[in-house]
Write a protein that binds this DNA or RNA. Structure first.
Length: 943
RNA sequence: GCGCCUGUGGCGAAAUUGGUAGACGCGCCAGACUUAGGAUCUGGUGUUUUGCGACGUGUAGGUUCGAGUCCUAUCAGGCGCACCA
C-alpha cells in the first residue's frame, strides 16, 4: 500500500477537529506568541495555489513555536464587508449576504484540506454584527475624541469643551480642519447647534465638506489609496473630484507618531520607506503675504524660504477660497471661465495633459521682505489639499514655476551663483546665494548673498519668525481618510441626525445592524442604498431603531445612510481575535495584556498604504484611549511574494485546425492560443485531453516534434482568462497536503514573487515517500530498531536539528526543506532505522508536513499528538569532524588539498604545509611573505 | 524626476563574519529492472578543451593574499511616490 496520503490526511484532519488540538486559551504559565495572516476577503473565485503561501509559512512558524513550548495564537477569519464582496454579488445578481456566506464556505473547505493549525473557535467575520459592534464602538469613540498636539495623544472631547469654555481657542493646540479663533465668551454664548458644528473642527471622526474622489461607476467615494492613476483600484473606473460632505478620520493627526513608530518595528526597509513616502513629511516655512490695496492676507507654504527674493508671481489653487476674494472686476470673466474648465477635468485628464494653464487674478501681493509687488495667478498645478493651496513661485529654482513663467512671459530671477536658467530651472538645493536686494530695498535686513542654500533657508526662517512674517511649519502629504461609502454592504454608522447635527447612538445600543433593503445596488448619482431601508430611524426615547415614517425630528430622527468603507472592519481585527466572543468589550484587559500585539504578521505588500496605515492609526487611537496596550499592532511583518501563473500556449496555423509544436512554429504563420495548464505536463501537451477540452478542438491535427507536442510558455498573472489557474484542491488530491505545503515552501524564499510551476512537485512527493519507506516495509509493517545510533547517524540528524532551529525563525524555509531531503538521503544510504534518530526527524518535520508526521508518530507508539512533542536540541559534539580538509592555495590560486586532525593548531598546520613536497615543488626558491590559515577552509601562502 | 529592491546554469534556487561558486529540487543524458511506463533505482550534468587546464555570479573598474559578498561608475528589470511648492 505504501504512503497513502489521502487516507492519512483525512484521518488526522478529523482527529484535530474532534480533539480540538489547536484550541488555544490564555495561559500565564506559558510564553505567548501571536502569529497572524492578513485575513482574506472571500472572493467568488475560491483559492488558487498562490493564496495559501503566506498561510503555510505562518502555519509552519506557529507549529514551530508551539513545539518550542510557546502558547501560540494563530487565528483566521474573513474580511467580508466592502467593495470586492459587494461587486461580486452585483455581478452574479445575488444578495451579498448570500454570496459572502457561500464564498466563506468554499474558502473554509479549501483551507481545511491543507491542514492548518488555526483555532477556528476564534473565527471572526467583519460582517457579523457581533464583530462590527466594535467597529461602530470605535467610531463613536473617535467621534468623541480630539487630538492634543502638546501631549501628543487623543483625549475626550469634553476636555476640549472645558478648555474652550474657559480660555477659548487660545488655550487649544489640537489637530483641526482649519484654524479657528474664538474667545471663551463667544463659545459660551453659542447655541448647542453652533457648538456642535464648531466641534467638528477637532473631532477625530468628523463630518467635512471636501473635495473627494468620486467614482460614478462604483457609485461611491474612495479613499486616496483606493485610487491608482486616476482610476479606481477596484474595477479601474474613472474617478472625478467632487465636493461632498463626508465622514472623515483625522489620520493626519497621527502622522508624526506613525512616522516615528516605524523605527520601532521590524518591517522590511522598503515597506517602511513606502509608508514614509505616503506620510510625506516636509519641513518648511509658512509666510504671510498682504494683498495690495486690500486687507486680505494669505499664507503660503514653501520649503525654499531662501528663494524669497526670486519670487516673481504667486499662484492659487483653483479651488482656493482666496480666488474669489482676489479676482478683480476686470479679470472676473477670465477667472471664472478658467475655473469652470478645470472643474470638468478628471484627475486622470489632469495627469495625462500637463500643458501649462492659468489665469491672472488682477491682484498683486506684497513681498513681506522686500515690499515688491507680485502678480497673483490661478493655476491647477497648485493643489488645494496640500499646504495652504497657495504658493510663492520662484521660476528660477522650481521646474513647474519655470514652465509657467516661460509660458506667460514672467521674469525669471536666478539666485544661485553660476546657475544657468536660460533652458531650465536650477532645482537642486545646493550652491551659493546671490542677487539679494541691496540698495533698492534698503529697509531689508535679510542678506543671503554668499551663504549656502542650507544656511540661507535657516537664516530666512529665523528672519521670518523674528519679524512675525510667518512661522516654521511641518507639512504632511498624508490626508485624512474619507470614511463614508454610498454603498450597501458595509457597517452602518451608529449616527442619527438631530437638527441636521450628527449624534452618536448610545454605546449600549450597539450594534446598529445593517437593515434589509429591497434595492442594494449603488447609484451613479450617489444616493446611498440605505435610503431604501424602511426600518431606519432612531427613536431616542426608547433607544431603538424604528420605522422611517415615524420621523418627527423631535424624538425620532433619521439615521445616517452611508456605510463604512472596507478598511473599517479590517483595522482592529487582530485585537478581536484575542477575545472574540466578548460581549462587553472589544477585548478584555486580561486578554489584551496577555497577547499584547501581533508578533508575526504575514501578508502582501499591496496593503502598504491602505490597511497597514489605517491599522496603525486605529491601534494608536485605541492605545490612547487605554484599550490596546501596545502602540504598534504588528511587531514583525513579513511580506509574502505573489505567486504568478505560468501559462502555456499552443500554436494554431492560421485558418486551419492544425497545431504545430513550439520549436517548429517559426516556420508557419501561427496564432498562439492559451491552453489550460492542467492538460500540459512539463510543457508537453496531453493531446487527447486537448481534443476533449473544447468541442472546436475535437478534430484538431498536430505537427509534432520527437512525437510530442511541445507548448510555449510565459509568466503572467494567475487568472481564469489565461487558463493558468492551479487549484490547491487538485494538488492535494494528487499529491497530498503535506507535499503541497513542502513544495510551496521549496519553491523559493517566501518574500519573493515567483511563478507557480507544478512540475517540480514530484521531488517533494518523492521525499515523503522515501521517508515513509524508512519506517514501513512493503507490507506496511513498522520496521524500526531500538539499537544505539552510530556516530554518522547522530551527526546527520544533529546537522538537521541545527539547520532547522536556525532557519525557521529567519523564514529560510526553502533551504530547510533542502536540509530535510539531504538528511533523508544520508540516513537512507546509511540504512538507518534507529528509533532514536528517526523520531527526532519526525518532530522536526512536523511544522512542514503535519499529517504524515502524526501518522508515523502514532505508529511509533505515542498516544499524544506530535504537535505537543518537544523540539530537539542539537549537540555540537556530534557535529565535530575528525579530520578537516584544507585547500592549499598560492597567492589565492588553489593548488591542492591536505587533511588535518580537527584539533590541529595553526602552527602545526603551517609547518606541515611548508614541509609538504607539493608545496616545496611549487614554491621552489620563492620566499614566503606570509601565510593565512582560515580555520576549516584554506591555507593561503603569499609569496 | 525622487526613493527602495533585485540581477548567479536549460529552470526554481543555495553559498556563516569576504575564504575560493552552483547545495537541494526540476529538466536533460546514460545505465539497471521491466511486456510496458509520465513508475522505481544507480551514475552524470556551468561553459570550453581529447586531456592538463582556462574561463565563469548583468557590465567596467577598485580595495584585498582572496570578492557573488565590500567600494565607485554603469546597464537592465521590478516596486513605491510624484505638478506635494
Amino acid at each position: 500500500m505504501g504512503y497513502n496520503f489521502n487516507a492519512i490526511e483525512q484521518k488526522w484532519q478529523k482527529y484535530w477537529k474532534e480533539n480540538k488540538t489547536y484550541r488555544v486559551i490564555e495561559n500565564g504559565d506559558k510564553e505567548k506568541f501571536y502569529v497572524l495572516n492578513m485575513f482574506p476577503y472571500p472572493s467568488g473565485a475560491g483559492l488558487h495555489v498562490g493564496h495559501p503561501l503566506g498561510y503555510i509559512a505562518s502555519d509552519i512558524f506557529a507549529r514551530y513555536k508551539r513545539l518550542n513550548g510557546f502558547n501560540v495564537l494563530n487565528p483566521m477569519g474573513y474580511d467580508a464587508y466592502g467593495l470586492p464582496a459587494e461587486q461580486y454579488a452585483i455581478q452574479t445578481g445575488q444578495h451579498p449576504a448570500i454570496t459572502t456566506e457561500q464564498n466563506i464556505k468554499r474558502y473554509r473547505e479549501q483551507l481545511d484540506k491543507i491542514g492548518f493549525c488555526f483555532d477556528w473557535e476564534r473565527e471572526i467575520r467583519t460582517c457579523d454584527p457581533e464583530y462590527y459592534h466594535w467597529t461602530q464602538w470605535a467610531f463613536i469613540k473617535m467621534f468623541n475624541s480630539y487630538y492634543d498636539n502638546k501631549e501628543n495623544r487623543c483625549k475626550p472631547i469634553e476636555k476640549l469643551v472645558e478648555k474652550l469654555s474657559k480660555e477659548g481657542s487660545a488655550g487649544v493646540d489640537a489637530a483641526c480642519t482649519k484654524e479657528i479663533e474664538i474667545s471663551a465668551q463667544q463659545w459660551n454664548s453659542m447655541s448647542w447647534k453652533e457648538k456642535e458644528e464648531t466641534l467638528m473642527n477637532w473631532r477625530i471622526a468628523f463630518l467635512n465638506e471636501t473635495m473627494v474622489n468620486w467614482c460614478p461607476k462604483l457609485g461611491t467615494v474612495l479613499a486616496n489609496d483606493e485610487v491608482v492613476d486616476g482610476v479606481s483600484e477596484r474595477g479601474g473606473y474613472p474617478v472625478v473630484q467632487k465636493k461632498m460632505k463626508q465622514w472623515c478620520l483625522r489620520v493626519s493627526a497621527y502622522a508624526q507618531r506613525m512616522l516615528d513608530g516605524l523605527d520601532k518595528i521590524d518591517w522590511t526597509e522598503s515597506l517602511k520607506e513606502t509608508q514614509r513616502n505616503w506620510i510625506g513629511r516636509s519641513e518648511g516655512t509658512e509666510m504671510q503675504f498682504h494683498v495690495k490695496e486690500s486687507d486680505t492676507v494669505f499664507t503660503i507654504f514653501t520649503t525654499r524660504a531662501d528663494t524669497i527674493f526670486g519670487v516673481t508671481f504667486m499662484v492659487l489653487a483653483p479651488e482656493s477660497e482666496l480666488v474669489a476674494k482676489l479676482t478683480t472686476e476686470a479679470q472676473k470673466n477670465a477667472v471664472e471661465e478658467y475655473i469652470d474648465r478645470t472643474k470638468k477635468r478628471t484627475e486622470r485628464e489632469r495627469i495625462i495633459d500637463r500643458n501649462v494653464t492659468g489665469v491672472f487674478t488682477g491682484s498683486y501681493a506684497i513681498n513681506p521682505i522686500t515690499g515688491e509687488e507680485i502678480p497673483v495667478w490661478v493655476s491647477d498645478y497648485v493643489l488645494s489639499g496640500y499646504g495652504t493651496g497657495a504658493i510663492m513661485a520662484v521660476p528660477a529654482h522650481d521646474s513647474r514655476d519655470y514652465a509657467f513663467a516661460k509660458h506667460f512671459g514672467i521674469e525669471i530671477r536666478p539666485l544661485i551663483e553660476g546657475c544657468d536658467v536660460s533652458e531650465e530651472s536650477f532645482d537642486a538645493k545646493e550652491g551659493i546665494m546671490k542677487n539679494s536686494p541691496t540698495a533698492t530695498f534698503s529697509a531689508c535686513k535679510l542678506k543671503l548673498n554668499g551663504l549656502t542654500v542650507k544656511e540661507a533657508i535657516a537664516a530666512t526662517k529665523k528672519y521670518v519668525t523674528e519679524n512675525n512674517l510667518g512661522r516654521v511649519k511641518v507639512n504632511y502629504r498624508l490626508r485624512d481618510a474619507i470614511f463614508s461609502r454610498q454603498r450597501y454592504w458595509g457597517e452602518p454608522f451608529p449616527i442619527y441626525y438631530k437638527e441636521g447635527i450628527p449624534c452618536p447612538v448610545p454605546e449600549e445600543c450597539l450594534p446598529i445592524e445593517l437593515p434589509d433593503v429591497e434595492k442594494f445596488l449603488p447609484t451613479e448619482s450617489g444616493e446611498p442604498p440605505l435610503g431604501h431601508a424602511k426600518i431606519w430611524a432612531w427613536d431616542s426615547v426608547n433607544n431603538t431603531i424604528c420605522d422611517k415614517e415615524k420621523i418627527d425630528n423631535k424624538t425620532i430622527f433619521p439615521l445616517e445612510l452611508n456605510t463604512m468603507p472596507g478598511f473599517a472592519g479590517s483595522s482592529a481585527y487582530y485585537l478581536r481575535y484575542m477575545d472574540p466572543r466578548n460581549h462587553t468589550a472589544i477585548v478584555s484587559e486580561k486578554a489584551d495584556n496577555y497577547w499584547q500585539n501581533v508578533d508575526l504578521y504575514v501578508g502582501g505588500t499591496e496593503h502598504a498604504t491602505g490597511h497597514l496605515i489605517y491599522s496603525r492609526f486605529w491601534n494608536m487611537f485605541l492605545h490612547d484611549i487605554g484599550v490596546s496596550v501596545k502602540e504598534e499592532p504588528f511587531q514583525k511583518l513579513v511580506n509574502q511574494g505573489m505567486i504568478q501563473g505560468r501559462s502555456n500556449f499552443v500554436y494554431r496555423i492560421k485558418d486551419t485546425n492544425t497545431f504545430v509544436s513550439y520549436n517548429l512554429a517559426k516556420d508557419y504563420d501561427v496564432t498562439p492560443l492559451h491552453v489550460d495548464v492542467n492538460i500540459v505536463s512539463n510543457d508537453i501537451l496531453d493531446i487527447e485531453a486537448f481534443r476533449s477540452w473544447r468541442p472546436e478542438y475535437a478534430n484538431a491535427e498536430f505537427i509534432l516534434e520527437n512525437e510530442k507536442y511541445v507548448c510555449g510558455w510565459a509568466i503572467e498573472k494567475m487568472s481564469k482568462s489565461m487558463f493558468n489557474v492551479v487549484n490547491p484542491d487538485t494538488i492535494v488530491e494528487k499529491y497530498g497536503a503535506d507535499t503541497l505545503r513542502l513544495y510551496e515552501m521549496f519553491l523559493g524564499p517566501v518574500e519573493q514573487s515567483k511563478p507557480w510551476d507544478t512540475n517540480g512537485i514530484d521531488g517533494c512527493h518523492r521525499f515523503l515517500r522515501k521517508l515513509w519507506n524508512m519506517f514501513f516495509d512493503k507490507d506496511d509493517n513498522l520496521c524500526i530498531s531500538n539499537n544505539e545510533p552510530t556516530k554518522e547517524e547522530l551527526k546527520s540528524i544533529h546537522k538537521l536539528i541545527k539547520k532547522t532551529t536556525e532557519d525557521i525563525p529567519s523564514f529560510s524555509y526553502n533551504t530547510t526543506v533542502s536540509a530535510f531531503m539531504i538528511c533523508v538521503n544520508e540516513l537512507s544510504s546509511l540504512k538507518c532505522n534507529k528509533r532514536a534518530i528517526l523520531e527526532q526527524f519526525i518532530i522536526l518535520l512536523t511544522p512542514f508536513a503535519p499529517h504524515i508526521c502524526e501518522e508515523i508518530w502514532e505508529a511509533l507508539g505515542h498516544n499524544t499528538t506530535v504537535c505537543d512533542a518537544k523540539w530537539p536540541m542539537y549537540n555540537e559534539e556530534y557535529l565535530k569532524e575528525d579530520t578537516i580538509t584544507y585547500t592549499i592555495s598560492f597567492n589565492g590560486k588553489a593548488r591542492f588539498t591536505m587533511n588535518f586532525a580537527a584539533d590541529a593548531g595553526k602552527e602545526e598546520i603551517e609547518s606541515s604545509v611548508l614541509a609538504n613536497e607539493n608545496t616545496k615543488k611549487y614554491l621552489e626558491d620563492k620566499p614566503v611573505k606570509k601565510m593565512i590559515v582560515v580555520p576549516k577552509k584554506i591555507v593561503n601562502i603569499v609569496f
